[in-house]
């Protein structure tokens, strides 16, 4: 809260509750107040292919192939069981992709 001051413990619990229910959903970014304006991770601005959609609201017109959405999951282990997973089954999936912004075309589709 920036305006009301929570004084006792219950007030602080309510503050936490409000923050938890009203704040943006922010992957991999926990604790502390969220900076504004907020740029979600995975936005194409930072070249983390992942959560963006095209102008029509789908994925067909994206500037990158949709399978590249998996890249972010793969690198950061964001999903609990992403496919491809780099721990067990596809340790070399990004072996030919030294720099994502340049080499993203070298990442192949995966058919488990």
């Amino acid at each position: 809260m920036r305006r009301l001051r929570p004084v006792n413990r219950k007030a602080r619990q309510i503050d936490d509750h409000i923050a938890a229910t009203q704040g943006d959903i922010v992957g991999l970014q926990q604790g502390g107040p969220q900076p504004r304006p907020h740029i979600p991770m995975g936005c194409s601005l930072v070249f983390m292919p992942g959560w963006e959609v095209d102008a029509a609201g789908g994925t067909a017109g994206l500037c990158q192939p949709v399978e590249r959405d998996l890249y972010d999951c793969y690198v950061t282990c964001f999903w609990p069981a992403q496919v491809p997973d780099h721990l067990n089954n596809y340790p070399d999936w990004t072996a030919k992709c030294a720099t994502a912004t340049k080499d993203w075309r070298n990442i192949d589709l995966v058919f488990p």
């Binding site: 305006r3 009301l4 929570p6 006792n8």
Partner: peptide, 16 residues
């Protein structure tokens, strides 16, 4: 200040 039925105590700014 305000004391609420939830048991919470808040200090109120002028705007509130």
């Amino acid at each position: 200040f305000a004391y609420l039925p939830s048991g919470a105590v808040f200090q109120l700014p002028r705007s509130a």
